[in-house]
Design a binder for these strands. Structure first.
Length: 643
RNA sequence: GCCAGCGUAGCUCAAUCGGCAGAGCGGCUGAUUUGUAAUCAGCAGGUUGUGGGUUCGAGUCCCACCGCUGGCUCCA
């Protein structure tokens, strides 16, 4: 007998080998019908897999938050089965087929053939058939050596490679009809349990993500328990496409990219420059409040500086160089060496620490042409970069300060974000004990501030461990923005010291950090996040005045003058077009407020306002409007004051 | 760089089997003086990404190059 503990705390004595399905049936018929799997001691479990130990069991139903993990994984098997039916099982070599955030994928090699986009609908048809067949899905285990033989016989060379690396003595397989796959599971009890899916795209992907390996073909798809959810997700993808910053950017005259002249290096148009400048103004305010000193350093510096910093050895591939009078210069890919030179230009006492230099530093990094992506992945960008020079016992406090500043800087945008602590990579400078000390300091700061974080082993920069902050954009994609990197090594290389209370030299500790990360990328994220409808404080044009006819231009000019005096970005649209036309046109430019001025307003000395959210407000007092909009702008509100 | 797809007017797209390169929007000109998401008329706009090939004839078929898009570990 085994003890089964249920979520409500009841404990049941059950036969050894009882399955979650049986447990569910005992509880209620309704639960049994909706059950697709279980969580056994916190591990996802097949509905029909026996439990032969004491365990806490929670039944996972089709609408459980853990359910997608199960049915999308099964869907990826169904897709693999369909691909094998389509091309012939002996022609298809399977890679891996995991669940990802909003769906799943599977990697294939089709011997002697290429999967094309036209194949996807046909594969979808075959998948529907497999779902209709409602094949039972069975789990079985094999000893490792037998498993290897089994997969070798099927010609599944990639699977053989995977099995060889598994540390257990036995490995598990899942079988549905003629299809068998190496898999940890769990899976649905049969292929008929989930019906709503869509294959989304086809892409190349190297086996195990390594470009020295063969390239496989990856099919992405998604699946949902309810038809409505699938439709909503597909709608969201369409919506995301509409807000694509690469489309909205040029359309709203924010930026352009001339791929012929400067691939990966955006040009910012007058309106885009306003947004960037507002972002910088905001950032600058908070940094100065927080004790940072702004500096400006050269873009091009002698290559010997980069030899000393170690960038030459570790980062050369990503750097641009230029040569004059027989001297080699590098265009800076990072701002740290420049800030170090400033720090070293005077003698610093322990009483001065921490010293915090801040710069909107424009850096250039060569990225391979295939990875460039609008403003999100560029070759030239501006970091809101700072370096904190402090003593070892100040580290925790300073890291905490940075984390709090990050929160303040993100707050007006309404993003959710998460943190990730990255540890020592293979290619690194300095010895391990220094690294572990640095990692510990970062961890302490995170723990004390109570921020949740994940650990990414071996993902640190070559000069130190780091905490990355990922924010989520409208498509649900995550972008790395803020980063805090501890660095015990650069101070060694440059011999960076302060004078202690003992009147002796001590090594400083350096903290690199950026919050927007790249202003360009952050701008891109904002365009998509707001779908181009920026909060008023960021909007390139905050108010547009529309005189109904020519005879209202004078009154309009008078109003415009008053708005300008108040520092509001205002334009007048007195084109000889109909009122309807001009309203529509300005609405599409996502200008927050339109002031419509005609006979009525002029005689009453009032204004009428139409917001980009389609609301009308008649006969408002101008002074009142100005003071309220100023309040909205100065508080960097995300919402229009007129709703 | 690699895999798949795509390059036609500023933008969105059309052009049957290889048979006269077209439409809407935008732009410009003129008329219209407008009350809350598109007034009417006219005009201009192209070496169909570039180069080569097949053909009587190529936007369309073939080859090379350039560019763009989606992706290239979220480790069974």
């Amino acid at each position: 007998m085994v003890k089964i503990t249920l979520p409500d705390g009841t404990v049941k004595e059950c036969e050894e080998g009882i399955t979650p399905a049986e447990i569910a049936r005992e509880i209620s018929e309704g639960l049994f019908r909706k059950a697709i799997g279980a969580e056994v001691n916190g591990v996802l479990w097949d509905l029909n897999r026996p439990i032969d130990f004491d365990a806490t069991v929670r039944i996972v139903t089709i609408d459980d938050e853990k359910a997608p993990e199960i049915y999308r994984h099964t869907m990826s098997h169904i897709m693999a089965q369909a691909v094998m039916r389509y091309f012939g099982a002996d022609k298809v070599k399977l890679g891996i087929g995991p669940v990802i955030e909003n769906g799943f994928y599977y990697d294939f090699e089709v011997v002697g053939k290429r999967i094309t986009e036209e194949d996807l609908p046909k594969i979808e048809e075959l998948m529907k058939k497999i779902i209709k067949e409602d094949l039972p899905i069975e789990r079985f285990e094999l000893p490792k050596d037998e498993a290897i033989k089994f997969m070798e016989e099927k010609g599944q060379t990639y699977k053989v490679e995977l099995i060889k690396e598994i540390n257990d003595d036995t490995v598990s397989f899942y079988k549905q009809g003629e299809f068998v796959d190496l898999c940890r599971g769990p899976h649905l009890p049969s292929t008929g349990k989930v019906k709503h899916f869509k294959l989304l795209s086809l892409a190349g992907a190297y086996w195990r993500g390594d470009e020295r390996n063969p390239m496989l073909q990856r099919i992405y798809g998604t699946a949902f328990a309810k038809k409505k959810d699938l439709e909503e997700y597909l709608k969201m993808l369409k919506e995301a496409k509409k807000r694509d910053h690469r489309k909205l950017g040029p359309q709203l005259e924010l930026f352009m990219i001339d791929t012929d002249v400067a691939p990966g290096m955006p040009f910012f148009l007058p309106k885009g420059a306003i947004v960037l400048n507002e972002l910088m103004k905001f950032s600058r305010e908070l940094h100065i409040e927080d004790g940072y000193k702004e500096v400006i350093t050269p873009l091009v510096m002698n290559v010997k500086l980069w030899h000393q910093s170690g960038h030459w050895d570790h980062y050369k591939e990503n750097m641009y160089f230029t040569e004059k009078e027989g001297t080699m210069y590098a265009i800076k890919p990072m701002n740290c060496p420049g800030h170090i030179l400033i720090f070293k230009s005077s003698t610093i006492s322990y009483r001065d620490l921490p010293v915090k230099y801040f710069e909107f530093g424009k850096v250039h990094r060569y990225e391979r042409s295939g990875v460039l992506h609008g403003l999100m992945r560029v070759r030239a960008f501006t970091q809101d970069d700072a370096h904190i020079f402090c003593s070892e016992d100040q580290i925790e406090e300073e890291i905490k300060g940075v984390i709090m500043l990050i929160d303040r800087i993100y707050s007006p945008f309404g993003f959710t974000y998460r943190a990730e602590l990255s540890t020592m990579p293979e290619d690194h400078m300095g010895d391990e004990s220094v690294w572990r000390r640095a990692e510990k300091a970062l961890q302490n700061a995170l723990d004390k501030i109570g921020l949740e974080y994940k650990i990414a082993e071996g993902e640190g920069a070559f000069y130190g461990p780091k905490i990355d902050f990922m924010i989520k954009d409208s498509i649900g994609r995550e972008w790395q923005c803020a980063t805090v990197q501890l660095d015990f090594l650069m101070p060694e290389r440059f011999d960076v010291n302060y004078i202690g209370a003992d009147n002796k030299e001590h090594r400083v500790v350096m903290i690199h950090r950026a919050i927007f990360g790249s202003l360009e990328r952050f701008f891109g994220i904002l365009i998509e996040h707001f779908a181009g409808a920026f909060p008023t404080w960021l909007a390139p044009v905050q108010v547009v005045i529309i005189p109904i006819s020519d005879r209202h231009v004078n009154y309009s000019k008078e109003i415009m003058g008053k708005l300008e005096e108040s520092g509001i970005r205002v334009e007048m649209d007195d084109r000889r077009e109909t009122l309807g036309y001009r309203i529509r046109d300005n609405q599409m430019k996502k200008i927050p407020y339109m002031l419509i001025l005609g006979d009525k307003e002029e005689s009453e000395r009032k204004i009428s306002v139409r917001t980009r959210e389609n609301k009308e407000f008649k006969s408002l007092n101008l002074e009142d409007f100005i003071s309220k909009i100023l309040k909205e702008i100065n508080s960097r509100s995300r919402e229009l004051y007129l709703k």
